[in-house]
């Protein structure tokens, strides 16, 4: 059983070659052959090199995957090229969960480039993958790993930021209105208080 060192994986991910950042050939003519890339990755993880059919859930429609999402999948394939994921047939079935559920939600908030340029997003992809694989990063307990993922989760963060931004904006608007001259002229006072 290899040690899944988080930082080693993050470092590996950030070295992702340019080629993986090309668009999918399903969206662009001279793009990357996404299906082939996925198949390769399956074969590498499962170690069954003759495997033909893809283990893709029926409800997934490749045509509905947008450019940003495809590129995230491409990048994650590079992550999965890391030697610690090779020949791990037990992980094969979990790949689907990672690609088509875990990654799906988060790609709505993360621009593909951030997966390899932003330290925290890189860590998020690694942690997300390890979570789907039910692997604990080296040296971490279940609780620690869960907390660390939740503290960098783009999905959670998005929700919280929107709330705190809106609440703050409302406060600033009230403050601004309070300073407005029109508010300060007020209205008739009829008695003393």
């Amino acid at each position: 059983m290899p040690k899944y060192d988080l930082f080693e994986l993050v470092t590996h991910l950030k070295k992702c070659p340019e080629i993986f950042l090309k668009p999918s050939n399903l969206l662009s003519r001279d793009g990357l052959d996404s299906i082939a890339l996925i198949s390769d990755t399956y074969r590498m993880v499962s170690a069954i090199f003759l495997k033909k059919e893809l283990n893709v859930p029926a409800k997934i429609n490749f045509n509905s995957i947008d450019d940003n999402y495809w590129k995230a999948i491409h990048i994650s394939c590079w992550l999965l090229y890391h030697h610690s994921f090779r020949n791990k047939p037990a992980l094969e079935n979990k790949l689907r969960l990672f690609w088509f559920e875990g990654l799906y939600h988060v790609t709505q908030y993360v621009k593909y480039k951030e997966w390899i340029t932003d330290e925290e997003r890189a860590e998020e992809m690694v942690r997300l993958l390890l979570l789907c694989f039910e692997i604990l990063p080296n040296g971490e307990s279940i609780a620690e790993a869960a907390d660390k993922l939740s503290s960098i989760s783009s999905v959670d963060r998005q929700k919280v930021l929107r709330q705190s931004y809106e609440a703050h904006e409302r406060i600033m608007n009230i403050k601004r209105e309070m300073a407005e001259k029109k508010a300060r002229e007020a209205a008739n006072t009829y008695g003393r208080e």
């Binding site: 406060i171 608007n173 009230i174 309070m178 407005e180 508010a183 300060r184």
Partner: peptide
């Protein structure tokens, strides 16, 4: 925190301030 007491439903265009 006067601003925290303002209902989200209050229309800010109607805000008046009485300074005491």
């Amino acid at each position: 925190h006067p601003h925290l007491f303002v209902s989200n439903e209050a229309n800010l265009a109607e805000l008046l301030v009485y300074y005491t």
